[in-house]
C-alpha cells in the first residue's frame, strides 16, 4: 500500500511568482514525515504539489520531478484525478460535506466516483474507515445524522476517515490539528501513529512538539525574505533536527531565537 516519494529540483510557481525553489528530498514508505517552518514559507504549497492539488489554483504550476514508486506524477500522460485517488489529503479546517450524513461523508470517495459497491460492502468500508479514524464508537448510533453536527475534533477525524476510505497510498495532512483542542489533537496523533502502519504520511505542522512526537523525519522550510521563494533548509531524522541540527537557521527556529 504505502509508497516511497522522491522529489528532485522542484520549483513551484503561482503565475510568475516563484513560491518554492529547489526542493530535493525522499520520503520513506510507512513513516511520518513532518514539515515545519514559519508561515508563508511554502510548506503547504509543497504538500499540495505532492498530489497535484496545487494546480487547482489558477496560474499555479510546477517544474521539476515528483516520483512515486517510479511513476512521475507530472508526466504528460498522468491524470491528476488518478493521482489524487492514490494520494489523499486532510485539510487544516475540517470540511465534511454539509449536505451529507456521517455515513455518506465516509462513503463519499466511492459514491462520488460512481464506483458500484454493494450495500454490505459499503457498510463494511464505512465501519472499517470510522474505526480506523477512532470515531466509530462515538458515531455508530447516529450515522445518518449530518456530519456538520459533530464537534471540530470529531469532524476532523471524520475527514480522515473519508480520506482513508478510498484506500490511498499516501496521506497528506495540512496542519490537521491547528483548529483542534489538545485532547482532539492527541486523538489525531494517536491515529496517525496507527495509520503509519499502512500509509505514508506527510504532515505540515506549526506545532514543533507535535513534529517531535509523531515524526521520524523532519523537513525545515524557510525563506530568505519577503518576496523570496521558500527553500528546504534541512531534511534529517527528527531526533537529529531537534537535538543537533546541521544548519544554524534550523537551530534558531527550533529554539525560538528566530528572526
Amino acid at each position: 500500500m504505502a509508497k516511497r516519494i522522491d522529489v528532485s529540483d522542484l520549483d513551484i510557481y503561482y503565475g510568475n511568482f516563484k513560491a518554492v525553489e529547489g526542493v530535493n528530498l525522499s520520503i520513506e514508505p510507512r513513516s511520518i514525515t513532518a514539515l515545519i517552518g514559519p508561515s508563508g514559507c511554502g510548506k503547504s504549497t509543497f504538500l499540495r504539489s505532492l498530489n497535484r492539488m496545487h494546480e487547482v489554483i489558477p496560474g499555479a504550476r510546477v517544474e521539476g520531478k515528483v516520483v512515486i514508486e517510479g511513476q512521475d506524477l507530472y508526466g504528460s500522460d498522468v491524470d491528476p484525478v488518478d493521482v489524487r485517488r492514490q494520494i489523499g489529503m486532510v485539510f487544516q479546517r475540517p470540511n465534511p460535506f454539509p449536505t451529507m450524513s456521517i455515513y455518506d461523508n465516509v462513503a463519499a470517495g466511492l459514491r462520488l466516483n460512481a464506483k458500484k459497491t454493494s450495500k454490505s460492502d459499503m457498510d463494511d468500508l464505512v465501519e472499517r474507515s470510522l474505526k480506523g479514524a477512532n470515531l466509530w464508537t462515538e458515531v455508530k448510533d447516529r450515522l445518518s445524522r449530518p456530519g456538520s453536527g459533530l464537534s471540530g475534533g470529531q469532524q476532523q477525524r471524520l475527514c480522515i476517515a473519508r480520506a482513508i476510505a478510498v484506500q490511498p497510498e499516501v496521506l497528506l495532512m495540512d496542519e490537521p490539528c491547528s483548529a483542534l483542542d489538545p485532547i482532539s489533537t492527541l486523538a489525531v496523533e494517536d491515529l496517525m501513529m496507527e495509520l503509519k502502519e499502512q500509509f505514508t504520511i506527510v504532515i505540515v505542522t506549526h506545532n514543533m512538539q507535535q513534529a517531535a512526537r509523531v515524526s521520524e523525519t523532519t523537513g525545515f522550510f524557510n525563506l530568505n525574505g519577503v518576496g523570496q521563494p521558500g527553500r528546504l533548509i534541512e531534511y534529517n531524522p527528527t531526533e537529529k533536527i531537534f537535538s543537533n541540527p546541521d544548519e544554524k537557521a534550523t537551530e534558531d527556529y527550533i529554539s525560538g531565537r528566530f528572526g
Binding site: V81, R84, G88, F91, N95, G109, N113
Partner: peptide
C-alpha cells in the same frame, strides 16, 4: 466554500462530478 471543492478533488473526484454532486 472552496474547501468543499478541494475536499472532493482530494478524494480523486473529477471536477464535473464535484460540481454535480457537491
Amino acid at each position: 466554500p472552496n474547501e468543499l471543492r478541494e475536499a472532493a478533488y482530494a478524494l480523486g473526484v473529477p471536477k464535473w462530478r464535484t460540481i454535480l454532486k457537491v
